[in-house]
């Protein structure tokens, strides 16, 4: 009976959240606050980035302070492709002629691939370390990329790069905030579904087992490094997609997207919502960005007020806001 009530709590939370998100554009129009659609698009995008970090942090136990690198690379991929498309110049002119593109069908998969490739390179080196060393090496890689793009004058350097318009998708007008919102919602829903299947699969069991003891997993015959690397690459690719979406939403990319403080913000979203739950980081992203929105009306130093909230959550809700909502027994994604 107790299990049933907890199952219901979780299901009710997820279904009601999904319903609320599905109806949000309509509710925002009725409330006469259309800007909420834009705010919630941002929440959905950061939720995707945070949920992707949860794959390696919550399930794999790998605390990365460089996740924004993949977020930023995804954004820059879209920005650079759009820049060359607008300028009608070649992205690469030799040995092959590769033009830019403003198509989401091209730019978004490329953003995922480039971010995943970068994750494979960073992961192959950083996953040989653990604990504090892993945190530091991921942070170092992200900062290297940050300074690389700061110095990349051809693509705006420190000032960043402005997109002429959002990407195109057949049958959709992404310039329309409501349509863009639903694309973000669909992509987040698809990621949560696939990631949920992944963590329940054999692959997910190995990743979750590694969080407890990698040696124990190895003594069961699993080449744990390969599993962790693949998980890191999947998380990097998903963060790249989130980056592609944020570039579209704000129609602007800058090195700040991959600064280590951005990685820290995504990490805070995961911890606030509840790590190892997949849905928790969505809640964490919503709570963080809504608090930012509300508190920053009163003061630009809103973090002063956010800090105590974070401390209370860490002290009294080890499984985050999602754990409070659904009960810790049923928090697993």
């Amino acid at each position: 009976m107790h299990m049933l009530s907890q199952f219901n709590r979780k299901t009710i939370c997820i279904i009601s959240s999904a319903l609320l998100l599905a109806l949000l554009p309509m509710l925002a129009t009725l409330a006469g606050e259309p800007y909420l659609v834009s705010l919630f698009s941002r929440i959905l995008i950061y939720a995707l980035a945070a949920a992707s970090l949860d794959l390696i942090l919550g399930y794999g136990g790998l605390v990365s302070l460089g996740h924004a690198a993949f977020f930023g690379i995804g954004a820059y991929t879209v920005g650079i492709l759009a820049h060359h498309d607008f300028e009608e110049t070649a992205l690469i002119s030799w040995p092959l002629f590769i033009p830019g593109s403003d198509s989401g069908l091209v730019a978004w998969p490329v953003a995922i691939l480039v971010s995943a490739l970068l994750a494979a390179i960073i992961g192959a080196l950083s996953l040989r370390t653990r604990g504090m060393h892993f945190i530091m090496i991921t942070l170092a890689f992200a900062q290297m990329l940050f300074f690389f793009f700061v110095s990349l004058e051809g693509y705006g350097g420190d000032d960043g790069l402005t997109l002429f318009s959002r990407n195109t998708l057949p049958g959709l007008d992404l310039g329309d905030d409501v349509q863009f919102y639903y694309v973000c919602l669909a992509l987040l829903g698809a990621f949560l579904f696939l990631a949920g299947r992944l963590v329940e699969s054999r692959f997910g069991m190995v990743i979750r087992g590694c969080r407890e003891s990698e040696k124990r997993m190895q003594s069961l015959g699993f080449p744990t490094f390969r599993y962790k690397l693949l998980c890191f690459v999947i998380a990097g690719g998903a963060a790249g997609l989130a980056g592609a979406l944020i570039a579209n939403q704000v129609e602007y990319v800058s090195p700040g997207l991959m600064h280590w403080t951005r990685s820290a913000i995504i990490l805070v979203m995961v911890l606030l919502g509840g790590s190892g739950t997949l849905y928790g980081p969505v809640l964490g992203a919503a709570a963080f960005l809504l608090l930012e929105e509300v508190l920053s009306i009163y003061t630009e130093h809103w973090m002063v007020y956010f800090g105590p909230v974070m401390i209370l959550v860490v002290l009294f809700a080890r499984h985050g806001l999602f754990g409070i909502l659904v009960g810790k027994e049923n928090r697993h994604g």
């Binding site: 979750r208 190895q218 069961l220």
Partner: peptide, 28 residues
Amino acid sequence: LPSYQVARQGLGLVPEGRQIFPNLTVLE
């Protein structure tokens, strides 16, 4: 050989100290 390859040769270890995976279900 690395330990995962040793295990794959057919050696099954029950380690000291009940080292199960606490965050997996019994079935998992």
